[in-house]
Design a protein around this nucleic acid. Structure first.
Lengths: 238, 238
DNA sequence: CCATCAACTTATCGTATGATAATTTATTCA
DNA sequence: TGAATAAATTATCATACGATAAGTTGATGG
């Protein structure tokens, strides 16, 4: 029964035509067009396909569509992921956990530059990653699905970005950085960080990347924080 | 064949037990427990059920679950809505179009109060509506589904809230309000508005309403704008 | 009282979905 | 070369979904 034509009403060809030879990548003319990847490589390709699909349709995108994008059959997916939820978690960790660039930590603490300049550079780099439609859409889809992702992200942003911003600004204004960051100080930085995220979402919803004036919007956000923090923390207090 | 027990494999009782008499509202002891609403009332109940379900599950929530919440059978839904997409649009207009309170327009333009006080009061009232989990979640679900909703919302917020804020602040600073609002001015207000929306989403994702310090966060956002606008628009320029 | 009409339910269709079992095919290494 | 092993496909299941057709029930007005 090789290359059998569909004969059963339940046969699931899922819109596949007669099985034409289909090459996933025209990279090498000598390779036998496709098939037989290592488990690791295949798994990575499935996750990549899932990322692309889920960022468009949300996590209700079907495993069949994931498989179609990966150029494989749907049951093969279950050799690499015990169920769909597990695949979703793989997408989470691939997209969200691998976001942070270690170089950024040093960038934020480089006191040879002003806080403004440091965070301007940082946010331009950060939004370069985070304003990708895939990241932004997956992020909001994940946020609406379960709150755990959000709790984790809240921690990351607070510890890696916002608290350093508050502390470095304190130093720049001649105050001590050792006291715990207050809720008020955090809220102020969250307003701007959240405002930037919202800006990215609006941009992507409008279908425009708008690379040009993104630096200006970041600068406006930082301007506001500099004015606000200076008004709230006069430098002579010590 | 009344009250027939399920006999066919395809019979769709959908988890309903033996059809016990079920009352939708224990309001009146004399009413015959349920059934027979006017078309208008039934339609409203379906939309309400859809709002609640979709705000939890997203718009992929099934029509069967909507029907179950409304206390009716699923096919009845199709007497009031030709298809699911139409029901979704009914949810859109019920939730998003009926959001704006006409009183707010006057509140924003009442020059007997400072711009700060006016917008503090406004945002406290506005977020009272908009920070409801139903509104916030439905909003982001809609935003991720189709960009049209977003384009409409962008206009509403800009024309009803942000441009009035810029113009009123110009007046307060002794500048003319007649010149067109610039992109820079709008971006600054969008940052704060978006920051507040993001704050609401974070609150709801964390599962806490946090009614107490919402006014403080609003005040911080307005503080920032007041400082920023004063720095950008010195009052002597005319 | 009963005919009429609208509200509501039952039964059912075609299709899509997550998941599994059985089978085939390519690669590897003794 | 040829077993052994892992990659990949075919066939299939049970369930859930959107949607439709036909029948049932209850209120209304003549």
């Amino acid at each position: 029964m090789r290359n059998a034509i569909c004969w059963d009403k339940n046969c699931e060809t899922d819109g596949f035509q007669v099985p034409i030879q289909k090459q996933s990548k025209p990279s090498d003319g000598a390779t036998p067009v496709r098939k037989r990847l290592s488990a690791q490589a295949r798994r990575a390709e499935i996750v990549q396909a899932a990322i692309e699909l889920f960022s468009e349709t949300g996590f209700d995108g079907s495993t069949r569509d994931v498989a179609r994008r990966a150029g494989i059959t749907q049951p093969l997916l279950y050799r690499y992921f015990p169920n769909k939820e597990n695949l979703i978690e793989a997408v989470y960790s691939r997209v969200f956990l691998e976001t942070w660039d270690m170089q950024w930590d040093g960038m934020l603490l480089d006191r040879t530059q002003s806080v403004r300049d440091r965070f301007q550079r940082f946010y331009e780099a950060y939004t370069e990653t985070v304003f990708q439609p895939v990241w932004l859409r997956l992020w909001y889809f994940a946020l609406l699905r379960d709150a755990n992702v959000h709790a984790w992200y809240r921690e990351v942003v607070q510890e890696q970005i916002l608290k350093p911003l508050v502390r470095e600004r304190r130093v720049e204004l001649g105050r001590s950085e050792v006291f715990a960051v207050t809720a008020e100080e955090l809220d102020a930085t969250w307003l701007l960080h959240g405002g930037l995220l919202n800006y990215g979402l609006r941009q992507q919803a409008a279908g425009q990347l708008d690379q040009t004036n993104r630096p200006r919007v970041i600068a406006e956000a930082l301007d506001m924080y500099m004015l606000y923090s200076a008004a709230r923390m006069p430098p002579q207090i010590n």
